[in-house]
Amino acid sequence: MTLAVRAPAQTVEAFFDAYRRHEVDEMVDLCTPNADFSYVPVEIWGRQRVVRGDGKVATIGKTLWTGLITSFPDLWNTVSSVRTGEEGGVVAVEVTIGGTQASAWANISARGGSFAEPHLFVFRCHDGLIDGITAYWNNASISRQLGHLEID
């Protein structure tokens, strides 16, 4: 029996559905083993180096999603638009992600604050799986909502 290959938009909707249920393994399973990952606003400046949110879904992506769900146990998302490119398996998604902070996240200590922030996700899909994720959002707005006003 041959399984039908999901359309790019269906794969992406399944991804956000899994994210809504905090099923990180399911999110990863919707991606190719070597899928690229780039959370553009993520950069943590240390004394010696800068850690960026760039790498692979299986390593950086999974770690970030797991950490976010731990720090924001009610993490939610509401997808407002899913648009598929005319060619190349590109899918752009506007989604609002939010949650209430229960423990420290990156350099933001927990004050019990909540955030809700619009994001733009760009997916590259291939054969029913996600082969690349890039996300843009205003991290400063999340910091403000959580009461963290220093630019580290």
Binding site: N139, S143, E150, I151
Partner: peptide, 20 residues
């Protein structure tokens, strides 16, 4: 037009220290 980017990155590069 809808634009998405991070003000933290913008202001960090312009040597601003606080959002407020």
């Amino acid at each position: 037009v809808k634009g998405f980017w991070d003000e933290n990155q913008l202001f960090r590069r312009l040597a601003v220290k606080r959002l407020d």
